[in-house]
Amino acid sequence: MSDHHDDFSFHNLTPERIADALADVGVDPQSGLLALNSYENRVYQFIADDNRRYVAKFYRPARWSDAQILEEHQFTQELLDEEVPAVAPLKLAGATLHHYEGYRFAVFPSVGGRAVEPGDLDQLERIGRQIGRLHAVAKQRQFATRPNVSYHEYVTEALATLSTSSLLPNNLHDAFFAIAEPLANHLKQIDLNAFTQQRLHGDCHLGNMLLRDEQLMFVDFDDARTGPAIQDLWMMLAGDDRAERTLQLDVLLEGYQEFCDFDSKETQLIEPLRSFRIIHYMAWLARRWGDSAFQRAFPWFAEQRYWEQQVLTLKEQFAALQEPPIQLQPQY
């Protein structure tokens, strides 16, 4: 059998190989394979011979170990067992993680649902409740093999990638690092380990929620990791107005604390974690640029104007870090 662990672009993951992989675990697609919107992995929806819809997720080679993927699977199953709406993989042939010709994959029920819109404050309180329910389960145990939210991964390694990337225009290299380096030095002073560490969704934003039968459901735990609770909360805050974002956070936490306690000191991590995400996102795109799917989806990443905007974004973020953190109402 051939080994495709170095097949970064999934070039050898043909429809025939996908069908053979599914057949290997007793699944027989009766429809075509509909590619879903996923860049890091390859995800396909299909109708099987039982006339039900399923989703097959093929994991990007070499990104996670088997143990790390299985911890993701276990976490989602724990959530389901506690009646927290989430999508967990099916157990087929006695396992949730399968191997076929160098590729690893899992099969999920296709749940469907509507995208969650930002909505009003009532919607935000509802989202807070669901994240609180998720975290109440998450705190019951710890990950053994999945990574932590860390300065080293999100900043040090990310900037090392960008420093050697040909995608960062030469004429902007000095300007970019003139702000990226002091920003990184500021972020380095923040001790994330001073805050309670717990299991997280890891990439908790509205795009990873679905509204199904009027119930909010979490999807895509591919970035599940360990870190402070605020990591799963701050991306729900919208807009640049500080007073508005303070109100949003108050409402979000009002719902959250119905199910899970929150340490108000973690509000000081909102802007640092935003900085982590901005830097890490650029490095992620740079590392994945060899995958043609990324070039088609993010053509602007190779354009001069994108990097000019990123220099401005980093300057704005550095300024935001100089401001005092959001102060919650006394009940928090």
Rank of each mutant, 00 (worst) to 15 (best):
D24I: 07
Y54G: 06
L134F: 08
L172I: 01
V27T: 11
G102M: 08
F221L: 11
M1Q: 12
D203N: 12
N51P: 05
D240R: 06
L247Y: 09
P182G: 15
I179E: 04
G239I: 08
P324A: 03
D20R: 13
L328T: 08
K57T: 07
H280M: 06
G113C: 09
P85M: 10
D291T: 08
D232F: 08
M209H: 14
Q68R: 08
V155L: 11
Q140C: 12
L80V: 08
I127K: 02
A238G: 15
Q248S: 01
K91T: 12
A229Q: 05
R104A: 11
F318T: 02
P61R: 10
N41H: 10
L249H: 13
S166I: 13
L183F: 01
N37I: 06
L124F: 01
R133S: 04
K91Q: 13
L312A: 13
E181I: 13
Y256Q: 05
S110H: 09
L70T: 10
S110K: 03
W289P: 06
T156V: 12
Q140P: 08
I47Y: 04
L80Q: 12
A286E: 03
R274P: 01
I270K: 00
L33K: 00
L33M: 08
T156K: 10
N193D: 14
E125R: 14
